[in-house]
Design a protein around this nucleic acid. Structure first.
Lengths: 202, 202
DNA sequence: CCGATTTTTTATCGGTCAATACAAAATATC
DNA sequence: GATATTTTGTATTGACCGATAAAAAATCGG
């Protein structure tokens, strides 16, 4: 019937792995890790539990795959950096872009990864989310370090903190305009920080 | 045996309501609403389930009592306001105080209320936490409105967002120094915002 | 003492959770 | 066609969840 010419023996899979991940991502983004049960997943994907476990191992592993997919599809701060721009410029663009993304779709509010850092009962998956979030912060830190190494840590810590606030309040239903305003205000702080002189510079 | 001279008929309660709330608050702050089961609560308090339900109604009601206790014991921004201070001054004091409180005890990291806004599977309790958090924001908003009504909303939104970040990262184990640094950076943003002129002022 | 009232103790309740046992079905290679 | 391999469908599994039924125990006002 289904001739996928997989080359492997055995009964062929009747469902699409990527579509299953899409469905799962939407559900998890909407309701969080613990808000989605296995029967929610299997019925939304249109498969039975054993098919799910054969394909993905466990609910937590499935979620981690989705976290990685999501973070891979999310632009890092580097994509907002233009040569010779002041530090605050790419940061403002980055934060504004996140604010817009977090509130674009009412069904998927906030950041899947940042939500998972506060939401997820599975210790392994929560740790994975934390690692991904920390990776994002490190990119901000390294970008800032290029021009102002003295500000790398404090600026990236502020940016990471504001992003948690954006994600939290996106979930509370704040409008894009409100979130963007917060993003721009935070960029003002970065700008003010860069007004201070780097004593190690001279 | 136990002569509490309550004046009421019936067998007297063998446990202390306030101590039970203290125990529950500690557990909930440590592990979150869903991380604490009823058997966790009853065994920690030292009572059986029916005694718990007779005294508190339900797990969610018990949690809401604790949320109200916690928020009642938390100083609002008004307690940091000194006559004729610039807007950014009480905000910086407030944020720094929160940063310190969130990281003071390793067993109770972050803000119980803000954590609950992102953590709590019970819709009613989560809504209560959201209301309390919004109440805190409104106090910031009203304080700012006294001198700069044009900045009341954007500043209070920024403060609320940074507090979510402080609470989130306190739970991630960030040091007091790091959190205080974020608090001070955010205050820089407020200071920068007040540098802009209020067009309605003149 | 008597009943009325309240809390205690013990033993569960039905529901939901993530995960699995088992055998039938569908493909590959030989 | 025979055998090996993989996925499928059906039916559960044991653990844990929040909440409760029922009766004994402890206090009250009379």
């Amino acid at each position: 019937m289904t001739d996928k010419k997989s080359g492997r023996p055995g009964r062929p899979r009747l469902f699409d792995l990527e579509k299953a991940l899409d469905v799962g991502q939407r559900l998890f983004h909407e309701r969080g890790y613990d808000g989605v049960s296995l029967s929610d997943l299997t019925s939304a994907i249109g498969i039975a539990a054993p098919s799910f476990y054969a394909a993905f191992g466990s609910k937590a592993q499935f979620f981690e795959m989705i976290l990685n997919r999501y973070s891979g599809a999310t632009p890092s701060i580097d994509s907002f950096m233009v040569e010779n721009d002041a530090v605050a410029t790419p940061i403002e663009k980055y934060l504004v872009a996140r604010a817009e993304a977090y509130s674009r779709d009412a069904a998927t509010k906030g950041c899947l990864v940042l939500n998972a850092t506060r939401n997820c009962s599975d210790a392994g998956a929560a740790a994975a989310a934390g690692q991904i979030a920390e990776g994002g912060r490190l990119r901000v830190r390294d970008l800032v370090a290029r021009s102002r190494p003295d500000l790398a840590e404090p600026v990236s810590d502020l940016v990471a903190s504001v992003m948690q606030g954006l994600s939290a309040h996106a979930r509370q239903g704040w409008s894009t305009e409100r979130l963007v305003s917060v993003a721009r205000s935070a960029a003002l702080a970065v700008d003010a920080m860069t007004q201070t002189s780097d004593l190690a510079e001279v």
